[in-house]
Structure formats: C-alpha cells, structure tokens
Design a protein around this nucleic acid. Sequence first.
DNA 1: AAATAATAGTTGCAGATGTAACTAAATACC
DNA 2: GGTATTTAGTTACATCTGCAACTATTATTT
Lengths: 158, 158
Amino acid sequence: MKKDKAHLNLQRFLPYRLTKLSGIISRSLAQRYSDQFDLTIQEWRIVAILGERPGLTAREVGELSSLDKVNMSRAIDRLEKAGRLERKVIARDRRSFALHLTNKGEEVLQQIIPLAEDYEANLLSSFSEAEIEVLDRFLNQLDNSADMLSPVTKKAAE
Amino acid sequence: MKKDKAHLNLQRFLPYRLTKLSGIISRSLAQRYSDQFDLTIQEWRIVAILGERPGLTAREVGELSSLDKVNMSRAIDRLEKAGRLERKVIARDRRSFALHLTNKGEEVLQQIIPLAEDYEANLLSSFSEAEIEVLDRFLNQLDNSADMLSPVTKKAAE
DNA sequence: AAATAATAGTTGCAGATGTAACTAAATACC
DNA sequence: GGTATTTAGTTACATCTGCAACTATTATTT
C-alpha cells in the first residue's frame, strides 16, 4: 500500500521566495553603497531617517529603521568616526543624544538618494502604476499577517 | 533661497520593506523550526529539497535552495551528525556524494511540512485565490528585475 | 598519457551579528 | 526625599557567516 507522503515545493514556498528575493536585492544594494560610499545598509538607513527627521535619538531612529540598539550603537559610532553624523546633548535626558547629519553626511545622503530611487524604479520597471499600488497593498497585508504570526518579541527593533 | 534637498521615505522604500518583511518571517519560522525540531532554516531547505528529489549532490541541492557550498557543507554535517541524512558514494564522481534523508530525516520532514504550509496559509489568509496568483506573478517580476540588477555574481548559490 | 585547468567539497580565519550583562540616568513608588 | 524599577545606550562574549585558501578528483589540452 502506498504511503501518502506530504510534499512541499521549496521554490514555491512564500517565505523562501521572499527571503531569496530580499537577499538578492540587499546584496546588490549593499555592494553599491559600499563601493561608492563606504556605507553599510544599516548606516544608510540611519542617514536616510535623519535626513528626513534630524534630531531624533538612537532609540527613535532604531524604531523607524528596524535596527536594534546594538546595531544602532555600532552604526552610529562608525558614522560619527566618518564625520557623517554628530550627537548633541539633550538637556532633559542625558542618557540619549539628538542625532544630526553633518554637512558631510548630508552630502552622502544627497548623492545616494537618486541612486536608491533609481534602483527601486528599475525593480519596478515592469509594473504599471496600478500594479505598484496593488503591490503596496499586498506588502502591507503580508506585514500585518507576519506581525500576527510573530511570537511576542521584546526586540526593540520593531 | 531654498535648497532643494532630495528626500526619501525609508518606510516606503521597496528594498527596505522587503528586507524587513522577510526578516520578520524568517525569524518567526526559524524560531519554530528550532524550538520544535532543532533545525536551522538552511537544514530545513535541504531536507525539503531532498524529500522531493533524493540522491542529489550538495552542489545540486545548493542550487535549488540558494545555499552556497560553505553553507551546504556545514548544514549537511549537522544533518548527518543528527542522523537525518546520509551520503552515498557516487561511483562516477568520487568528489561528491548522493544525499538521502534517513528515516529520521524523513520523519522530521513529514512533521514539519504541515507546519510550514500552515504558516504560509496564515500569511496569505487575507488574500483571495486571484490575489495569490497576482502576488505570485509580482514576485516573479521582482525576481527577474533583481537578477538583472545584480552585478554578475560568481556565487554558486543562484 | 602527462600536464593543466576546472570542479566538489572542506577548513581556517576574520568580520558581522545577536544575547546578555553592564553603566548611567530618569521615572515610579512609598 | 530616598529606594526600587525602568530605560538609553554600550560593551563583552559567543556564534554565525562569508571569503579565500586548500585537498581531492575529474575534465581538458596538447
């Protein structure tokens, strides 16, 4: 009698597909950032956030960039040493600093933004406007489901 | 005169969104696999592939699971030590082995498949059948674009 | 068929990353 | 107001990961 074995096609398994896709994209972007600006992806995220909202603390930037505090601490160190970011003392809370891009940091950001936008546009070049909106909605739906399915996490990073 | 600074909203940046999403999903799945089966995601991929196609070599499994040869070598070691996989000598090429799941490995696979399918179904619970097809197409389109945009890579893993 | 190049897989090492412990400061509690 | 608890950020340590060098075997070249 034939045993009914369950089968699973990995190549069609959504978590695998997403991880693979995001890996390819991340490696490709990391390469560009690193080659041209000596910038890691973590640093890029921080710079991007601070460009929009200067003066946030490490914790706040971390929340917006999905980086935990250890990652933040290290990336901020590197950015500061590279002269791209500075910490300003906050009077009312001397545990944290207000983070600001320096001119140098701002310059990097201004150079890298078109590059990032260009990359994104290329990724989406086969999508119509309407499809991009649908994709956007799909990603939000997946985010929501994924959050629901996540064990309650004490990670600071979300 | 106002400086025209470029802005970029990280939260809406597709590579960021994909990385974040895939990270949440991967961590969540890794947790489950690890808790219940003491299995890493790499090992899971290998087991899943071998369940469908026993007898492949490490290189072949690696291609199908996007794992490079170093990752493969290590994961195969762990699976073998756990008694979940065995290597069989191939007469015509003594550099490689034919990989097979043991009964133990097959058992793990049979237990884990429903869990994985259940997780995926939950991820997609807010999607209609038609939407799932669209999502599938979108992911393929993104894969294609991402591949085009990747620097020619000698990675064995794709 | 000897020499050369290519391939499969392993291992050493270095850098990256995550967890947990730690310090300093702020907040809550009594 | 003083003690206990929580929070922001840093650091130490252990693990993971990726690259490059290596071994063994097979394929190619001449």
